[in-house]
Design a binder for these strands. Sequence first.
DNA 1: AATAGATTCTTGACTCATTCCAGAAAGTGG
DNA 2: CCACTTTCTGGAATGAGTCAAGAATCTATT
Lengths: 134, 134
Amino acid sequence: MLRGAALRVTRPRVAVLGAVHAHPHADTETILHAVRRELPKVSHQAVYDSLHVMTAAGLVRRIQPSGFVARYESRVGDNHHHIVCRSCGAIADVDCAVGEAPCLAASDDRGFSIDEAEVVYWGLCPGCSTQRSS
Amino acid sequence: MLRGAALRVTRPRVAVLGAVHAHPHADTETILHAVRRELPKVSHQAVYDSLHVMTAAGLVRRIQPSGFVARYESRVGDNHHHIVCRSCGAIADVDCAVGEAPCLAASDDRGFSIDEAEVVYWGLCPGCSTQRSS
DNA sequence: AATAGATTCTTGACTCATTCCAGAAAGTGG
DNA sequence: CCACTTTCTGGAATGAGTCAAGAATCTATT
């Protein structure tokens, strides 16, 4: 699977890829801990590098909502979007909005060549929502 | 104008607000420099604080595309979106997409209470686009 | 206008995610 | 199995942003 992306298959990379699959929307530290449960000696640098390489290869997607640290997810290639909780930072997946029309269709591209449209919905997750209203 | 938001009118705040109006999509450092051209003694802390307060009050909007530092803009209340250049980080405004329908309409809210939909278009600005193809 | 009281600013240290670097280790093609 | 290249380790560095304490400034009131 890594080989398909012309990447070297190293122990750290396999572990990182597995961790991203096992922990959707996890931040780097969570992934680092998950990886170390399996390979206690990996450096954080290896994790950062693996994530970068895999992001560049399209095996993994990087998400970084304003005010939060970077997260990674393994669901790629289907152009879905995210709901982010303003309070706790929880992230949920959302399929592409109504009719898929808005994705990649700006009313005026201002001369830019657009290759992706990213939608982020902001709000409160069920937990934080009830907590705040009580 | 600041008074309308129940904020104290201090010299730094006036200067910061002016700088945000004068430099759309500017990062904090740019704003800091612009402010210091007028009030050489302002601390960066004052700028950060002013921006936070004004963001909370809705006088200013914070934008933070993945991988770039935070920017601020003064155009608020009209729910427009942005095009970001992957290469140089330039930002341009785009009015709300087709029919305004997608804004605030997730196909499935997963139990979240959504209050805002943010759309970011990624691509290359005219300058970087021609530079890369040459 | 002067004063009291509270918010806001200055200064400077500090956090923490992420990056940079050099040498050691491990993967790959031949 | 070897040589070559990429990747990993370990540790230091960067830089946006935050924290904290005391000084300065703003607002409402007299």
